[in-house]
Structure formats: structure tokens, C-alpha cells
Design a protein around this nucleic acid. Structure first.
Lengths: 231, 231
DNA sequence: TGACATTAGTGACTGATTGTTACTAATTCG
DNA sequence: CGAATTAGTAACAATCAGTCACTAATGTCA
């Protein structure tokens, strides 16, 4: 019983080193890609995630925003924490604890900033073990949340065709979807509204552009799904 | 452009104070309850989440396990991180950063350890602002993940009736479920298997006991759901 | 110019899943 | 014994998702 109470007598928290590690994801070609930064000479790996220590009185998301802006030139609109990492895995700056944050940005034509490069998730270069774990977790989080959170729309420009939207979903889910079913479900969700603009890709019929405009839905209470991943 | 590269020149990560704050959840009566610890005299709030700083070379989950064991007497079998918190909100130990971890334990008959008490989530006492945020996040995570993760089974003993299981789901989801639909979906999920034991609660027909025994399912690829919470 | 390839978008059929009602089964209580 | 109570299931109806087949609007190229 003394054991049980002893934790109350903790006096002060210890000092540790903290890093915010950002996984910037964007569709690139037909795959999700992460933006990596060339590591300084002498580092054990050539590439790293953009990272930094948060400044005094700077929130974690604020730090992530600053870090992402430093590599992108502008701040992404969407961030989500993917967890704190403090296992034995090595961090490039030897931080004791990393907070992993995923940022989503629409596809861009521009080349990335100097010393940075997009890598498809399936073809990442060697990263410090903790960075590898953070990227994997970020991808898993994006895949898991795609139905609950407007993730897909953060990977697209403000207006987009339904085919674009479907491609992003396919990219995140890693499988093909059926066009008619996808649109029927989207219709029922009241998440997008049409604009009066049309987009012509070259060949084929032009597609209507839509924008993300979620409207409140009547309480659609679905049953339990038991979608456990029991591989 | 110099701006974009400057983050590479970061030298050392700063020192911060880190706490692991644990939300131990358990069904208690007909509500989810969290285990709180009486705060030492002089603290601004009477109750706190169990928390501590991780020890040197101790992983976050290990720390959570140790902290939970110190209040429960035995270590819970299930932990899940709910995120890092470092906003302006006050922590009882003034930690710069908190890692929130939720632990799930089955309902127990025993009274909690001295100086601890179960509080239904809907009737929590005043907590330090950061602890309040962590509890809310923990509850939200539990509710969100109940379909993807075997959370519900961690809140039950090793064998349980289907009515017990349904009650836990109702408790986590905050709404009633239909018995026949629930069982049909559970059947299709291959998550439980019957034992040859039966449980008699007093009045009413005895119920068969089941155990959690997930079996591999053939790839059930469901369509996209667009279950965004657009309240 | 006109056939054809290509992409967008929709209607309709079918089978699967879910919500609901109503029933049967096994027990305790009085 | 009958009423109350909890467990468990069958069967119907309504909805939803997968598929196929079609129409529409453009560019390409012989």
C-alpha cells in the first residue's frame, strides 16, 4: 500500500529533450509522397524528416506549422498529431522524445525547396529508425482516419473533380473504388457542392468542379461495424 | 531561401519537463469511469490523474504501466496513447509536455486503492485544465476506436456474455443498440467464440459465456463511408 | 469529316446488410 | 403454477453497396 501511494510523492519532473518531427504528405503522381530534407554532412543517414525543437511557449502544432512552412514556403492548413515516440530508436538529433505530426498539402506543380525532395512512401530512402517509425505511423493514421476526418480534401486544391477526389481516396485506402458506388455515397454524405466551373484535362469529357462544403446531416446512426484488423 | 534552410542548422534540442498522465477507464455501474487520485494538500485541485515523469530509459508505455500499476495494484493489459499535450493549460506538476495514455481495465468488485476513487466521466470533479483535456481526449479516442480496436474486450473479464459485450459497446458509443443486429454483426466478425460455460445473473434465462478469440476473416472490403462528424 | 479512344456521369438490377418486430427458451419469484 | 425477466433467434422490410450497361462530351487521327 505504501507502494501505491508513493507516486504521489514525486517531486519534480525530469528534464528531457523534445523534438517535433513533421511528416508532410502530398499526392505525387499516383502515390502518396513525403517531403524529406537532405541531412547535414556527417549524419548517419542522407535524409531526415523536417524537425526542430519547439521554441519556448510554442505549442506543438505551432512548431509543426513553423517547421512545415520552413520547407514548403507556406504553412499547410491541416495538421494532426500521430503520437509521441520515445522508444529506444535513434533520432537524428538524439531527442529523448519526438512528437510526430502529419501535415497534408495539396499536390503542387512547383519543385520543392532546395535540399528537399518528395519520396513516394513505398520508396523512402534510409531514415533514422525513429523517423522511419514516425512516417509509418503517419501513413497508418492517414489511412485509418480517411473516413472520419476530411483528410482527403486537404490533399486537393480548393476545387476538384470527383475523379480527383476518388483518386485520393484510392491512394489513401490503397485499393480501387467503384465509381458509381463512390459517388452515391458521396451524394448521401452532403460533403461537397458543385461549382459552375468545369475542368478539361485534355482528352475525354470535361468534369464538373466541386468544392468541400460539408452540410449538417440528419443523424445517421449506423450499426456497429466490428472492423477489427485481425490479420 | 535562407529561411528554408535555417532549420537544418538547429544545434541542440531544448530541455523540457515531461509527464506521462494516465487515464484509467473502466465500466462502473452504467457509465464509464476514470480512476483519480487525491491530490496532495495545497494543490489547486483536489483530484488528479495518476501521473509521473518517465524514468531514464523507460518507454512511455512502460511508464504508463508502472503508474497504472501503482494505483491499481496490477498492470492493465491495454494501453493506447491519446497524444502529447503542451498547450498553455496548467499541469499539476507544471510539466511542459504531457503524454496522455489511456488504460482500459475490466470492471472490478474491489474498492480502489487508498486515496483513489472512480468517477463517472459525466461527473468528474474539477481537474487541472490539462488533465481535463486529456480525459476528454481519452474518452473521445475510446469512442472513435471502438470499431477498429478490440477496446471493448479490454473492459470485460476474459469470459463474458453477449449482453455484457453489448452493454460495453453501448456505454462507449453512448447509444442503445439493437440486440439482433448486434449479434448478427458480431457473428459475421468472427471475434468471439462460445465457451461451454453459462452464467446465471439471478433472474432470467442464463446466458452463454464467450471469449475474445479473433479469427482471420476473408477480405471483407467495405465501401467508403464518409462518416465525417460535421456537426 | 467522321470513326474511335477516352474520360465523365447516371440508371437500373441484384445481392448483401441492417432495422424491426415478434416470437421461443430458460430461469427466478411469489 | 403463472408472471416477470433475461437470453436468443427467425423472418420480413427497408436500405445500401457492387456491378453492368448505358449516355455524354471531349480530343485524336486516319
Amino acid at each position: 500500500m505504501r507502494e501505491r501511494q508513493s507516486f504521489q510523492m514525486k517531486s519534480a519532473v525530469r528534464r528531457t529533450t523534445l523534438a517535433v518531427d513533421v511528416v508532410v504528405l502530398s499526392p505525387r503522381g499516383d502515390a502518396l509522397a513525403a517531403l524529406l530534407v537532405r541531412a547535414p554532412a556527417g549524419a548517419r543517414e542522407r535524409w531526415t524528416l523536417p524537425w526542430d525543437a519547439p521554441r519556448p511557449d510554442e505549442g506543438l502544432e505551432d512548431a509543426a506549422s513553423r517547421i512545415a512552412e520552413s520547407v514548403l514556403g507556406s504553412a499547410p492548413a491541416f495538421f494532426e498529431q500521430v503520437g509521441a515516440f520515445s522508444d529506444g530508436k535513434r533520432h537524428p538529433g538524439d531527442a529523448d522524445v519526438s512528437v510526430g505530426i502529419v501535415a497534408l498539402v495539396p499536390a503542387r506543380d512547383e519543385n520543392p525547396a532546395a535540399e528537399t525532395e518528395w519520396f513516394p512512401l513505398a520508396a523512402l530512402p534510409t531514415l533514422a529508425p525513429r523517423h522511419r517509425a514516425i512516417v509509418e505511423r503517419a501513413a497508418a493514421v492517414a489511412r485509418q482516419r480517411v473516413d472520419q476526418s476530411p483528410l482527403a480534401f486537404r490533399l486537393l486544391p480548393s476545387t476538384f473533380t470527383l475523379s480527383d477526389l476518388q483518386s485520393v481516396y484510392e491512394l489513401l485506402l490503397g485499393r480501387r473504388l467503384h465509381k458509381a458506388s463512390f459517388r452515391r455515397a458521396l451524394q448521401a454524405s452532403y460533403l461537397v457542392e458543385p461549382t459552375d466551373e468545369w475542368h478539361s484535362e485534355g482528352r475525354g469529357r470535361p468534369a464538373q468542379l466541386f468544392r468541400f462544403a460539408p452540410r449538417k446531416r440528419r443523424g445517421v446512426r449506423r450499426g456497429v461495424r466490428f472492423d477489427l484488423f485481425t490479420e
